[in-house]
Design a protein around this nucleic acid. Structure first.
Lengths: 208, 208
DNA sequence: AAGAGTCCGGGACGATTGACCTGATGAGCC
DNA sequence: GGCTCATCAGGTCAATCGTCCCGGACTCTT
């Protein structure tokens, strides 16, 4: 067994834990299965992490940061606004289809964190980071394409985060890829309607 | 201990399990904690159910049917369409705020079912029932209020199911009730825009 | 009232889990 | 070379879990 500094071992164990949890589910992932996945002995596990909870904390922050990167990279400026939004959804969607297990894992970890005393802040951090990422993207897009919003940025960001989250979960349960072209088109049109500040496009205004 | 027919005992144990799982989480709910919550001995549990899995199956179908009822009762026809939709969201939302633990439980059970070999169909049934319920409500509302849709009913139903699911999960994690008035208003306006067949209200049409 | 079928209680078993412990191994520094 | 400390291997332990067994008690039928 090759020697390795603790920090790198921790990364190795964290990534092994992510693979094991994505494959078997959080509930069925034990310290032994993680050690086996990382191809180290069980005692190495407890040498690098004080407890299983300490590793799970590392897993949650790692995978959260990972998916923030995925969302950020999905949105790249294109010719028109609608095209940009639609391509962004599509890129995110392709990632979900390619790695369903890992997306499923993010949901499991959220609930694990919410149920584990002292871990609630990790679940909140996860979802705040999602919303903040969308807010940042909206802001950045707004500056490069020069438009105004008909709704608060924070509300739109949160709506986007929640909606993509719900759509993703729905897809993970039901599959049926064909149904999503229509839905993504509809959502894209909706976003475009909220963004273009050219008159009242959606019927009645929200009550004042 | 009062004697009781098996069928009624099973209902009692199922409801006790729902309470215990909503309080402690699915992972930490044991056969012993369920029996204690139902105030029966452990052997009664295995007299009524062949295994813990058999009880969980009963729990999933029960709670799924329960929430279909909640959604159906949330939507009652009002003066205008927009008013009806907004009040429907609000009624559902009030239920989420009143019973966050039970809603959280539905997400945990979905993932439990997806991970448990042979239980995937229960998760799919859950989400299909959600979509079907929305489709039924849309259809029923369309007949009583006489309007046409700009998108397929099935797509809108699925979008509604996924979006409310995502918004609910987001609220369960982040809380922050104040943020939701804006979001529900925005979504309501969106739905109203999709439903009113009075010209092109949302900018560009989805690509043909 | 007697027997059969149904329900309940306490206890026990085997398996699995997270955590820990002791001793061996190897690399880098004096 | 010898010393020190990070790293590893295997075994052990207590706790907890789902499941099961057996004996007793209740209820309904006849």
């Amino acid at each position: 067994m090759a020697r390795m500094p603790s920090a790198e071992r921790r990364r190795q164990l964290t990534e092994a834990a992510i693979r094991a949890m994505a494959r078997d589910g959080v509930a069925k992932t034990t310290t032994r299965s993680i050690a086996a996945e990382a191809d180290v002995s069980l005692s190495v596990f407890h040498y690098c992490f004080d407890s299983k909870q300490a590793l799970v904390e590392s897993v949650i922050t790692t995978i959260t940061d990972h998916y923030v990167t995925v969302v950020k990279e999905a949105l790249k400026p294109r010719a028109s606004l609608e095209e940009t939004v639609r391509a962004g959804f599509q890129a995110y969607w392709d990632h979900v289809r390619a790695h369903p297990d890992e997306h499923m894992l993010t949901y499991e970890l959220t609930q694990y964190a919410l149920r584990q005393p002292g871990f609630e802040h990790l679940a909140r951090r996860q979802y705040e980071l999602y919303s903040d990422t969308y807010a940042e993207l909206i802001d950045q897009l707004g500056r490069s394409m020069n438009f105004q919003l008909r709704v608060p940025v924070s509300a739109l960001a949160r709506y986007l985060a929640a909606m993509t989250d719900g759509l993703t979960l729905n897809y993970l349960v039901l599959g049926d890829e064909a149904a999503w072209t229509d839905i993504l088109d509809t959502v894209t049109a909706h976003i475009a309607g909220l963004v273009h500040a050219e008159g009242d496009l959606t019927g009645e205004k929200p009550r004042p």
